[in-house]
Every structure is written in C-alpha cells, then in structure tokens.
Simulated assay, not measured.
Amino acid sequence: MARNRLNRRTVLKNGAGIAGLSVLGGSATASEANTESGRISGPDYGGSAVGFEITDVDGGGTLIENVSVYETPMLADLHTVVWDEGWELVKNTRDDAFRHYVSTDDGAPGGTAIVTFEYVNPYEAIVKYWPVLTQRAIASAARPALLVEQELELGSYSPIRYGGSPGLRHTIYTIANPTIGTEATSGVVTEKRGYDAFVASTDAYSVAIVQRCVEPDVRTGFDGHRVGDVGVAQGTDRSAWVDIYEEADGWIDRNFANEGDIDFGAGLYVGGDQDAGAITPVPTWRTGIGFATSNGVAIDNAIATVEDGYETERNRY
C-alpha cells in the first residue's frame, strides 16, 4: 500500500430525516446536533429527484447531509476538510468552524455555506490567520446529480506583518459516507474520460464522485484517495475518516476498493503559497456526485455537472 504525502479530511456518519440512515464515526446524530436543516429538492425525473440538506450545526459549523434520490438515501453526509501543510493543522466544516453562515437559494434548489476557520501557529501562538471556505451546492436540473462548488480564501492575518508571508499550502479533502438504502455497499476507485472517479454501488443503484479543480489550474484527478470501512480504527481497512482527519499527520494511505459499511476520502492539493503583496487566484474546485442505476451512467452524470459548474446549473432554473 503506497503512502502519499498529502492531507487528511473529515467524515461523519450522521443520519436523520431519511429512513435507513445510520450513525457512524463517533459523532452526535443529526437529530441531536442540528439546529436548522431545511430540505432542498431538485426536479423530479420520474422518481429521481435529488434531495439534500445544508445543515447549520448547533455549537459547530455546517454540513451537507441526507442526500437522496430515487426516494432512497444515497449519502449520509459529505464533509470538507482543510489541511495546512506548513502549520500541520486540520479543520473540518462541521466541528471546527470559528464562524459560519448558511443560506438557501430562493430561485433554485441550492444553498450556500460560508465557514471561517481560525488557525493558530502551534510554534508561535501569537500568529493567526482566518481562512474562509465558501460552498455552493445545487441539485442539477439536467440530470440526477448534485454539484458542490467551493472556494478557499486565505483570509486575514494577525499580526498584520505576517500577511501573505507564511507560505501557506493546503490540501482539501472530501469525505463521503455512501448509504444506499439499507444494503451493504461496494466501492471502487476507477477512471473515465480523464477523471478519477469513486463509485459506490448495490444491485439497484450507483453513486459516483468526481472532482474538478478550476483555479489556479484545471485538474481532474484525486491527490490521494481511500475507500475505508466505517468504524475501523486500525489496519488496512481503517476508515477514511480515521486515516485523514483523526490521524491528521499529513499522509493518506491509498487503496482502491472496499465493501460493506464504507466511507470514501479524496484529496485535492490547492497550494496557497503567497508572496507579500502577490495577487493569486482563489483556489476553486467542484465536487460532482452523480446517481444512476449503473456505474458508468453515474460517473457520466458526475462529470457532466462538474464541467457545467454552478452558474450553468443555476441558470437552468
């Protein structure tokens, strides 16, 4: 098993609002932790309406969860984790928010979450910065798919003399918890049309996840990935949540497949090096989640929505 010098990310298995979701990963259930979690539903393609929630978590931050289609639960939750390589710190949008804000789109089945993290230099505690992560999620009007488009702004520094100079380098991790109905799920990492893709499937349905970095450059691969067994803390089958977020050592142990009660994590290196006064593109990337009754079509749906992007998807409504 190869070890890749990349980052770690977070995953929680929450369940509420959809029958059949279970709680995994050692966190409070959604019903215990959520204060607001309005349901967002897309167009109905003969029973294939995509529904999801952007949850405002009591005492925490935000979470995309309870994703369903075909009137069946598909993903318990979708987490974003930010890893700072220079200061060796890891944050996730649910547990580690310094400030957060959630809103819904009145004109389309979508919503926005804005999360601010506080990073404190572990070697020089007076030095801090506040990166801001913006997520925009929308159910596609063109296909059974969910798009999450995100931006990471490095934010402000204190003391100000450190502004732009710490050489901040980030990897973003997405961790997903497939829960397709109540059946055991198989998961595999594959490739199609130049994209790395993760596919979780049962005999009835498939869920595919791809990512596309659009700034500062276009990339369609995973910078490390893991298909884990939820609840396993050690060994070759340990969960992606444990490997990425709990161990938080800047490594991800790559594997390609697993089955049962699985989770999945993938990395995306977005850099972030800045010279004082330099203007650099804000790192921007898209996560596409496609649904279908076959693996190939699920991947095609995920790829199509990340290639369209949020504005194109939004303008369809």
Rank of each mutant, 00 (worst) to 15 (best):
T134E: 06
I303W: 13
N177Q: 13
V199S: 11
S27L: 03
V210K: 13
G277H: 09
R161D: 15
A302S: 00
N301R: 08
G38L: 08
E118L: 01
E36D: 15
G46C: 06
Y129R: 08
A137I: 02
E149C: 00
V232C: 01
R314M: 10
E53C: 13
I303A: 12
G60F: 07
E307S: 10
V127M: 10
T116E: 14
N295Y: 00
V242W: 11
N315D: 07
N315R: 06
A208R: 10
R193T: 09
V102M: 05
W241K: 01
L147P: 08
T182C: 09
V282A: 09
E311Y: 11
G194T: 09
F52V: 01
G155I: 02
N7P: 12
I303P: 12
N295F: 01
S158L: 00
A240I: 02
D84E: 01
T236A: 15
T182L: 14
E313Y: 11
C213H: 04
I54Q: 03
E85Q: 09
N301C: 08
E53H: 08
G309W: 09
A28T: 02
I126G: 00
I40Q: 04
L75H: 05
F117G: 00
K13R: 07
R3K: 11
K91T: 03
T55R: 00
V210N: 14
R5F: 14
D249Y: 02
S68F: 13
A233H: 05
S103Q: 01
L78I: 02
V232M: 03
A137D: 00
E65W: 02
G26D: 00
V242F: 12
G51Q: 10
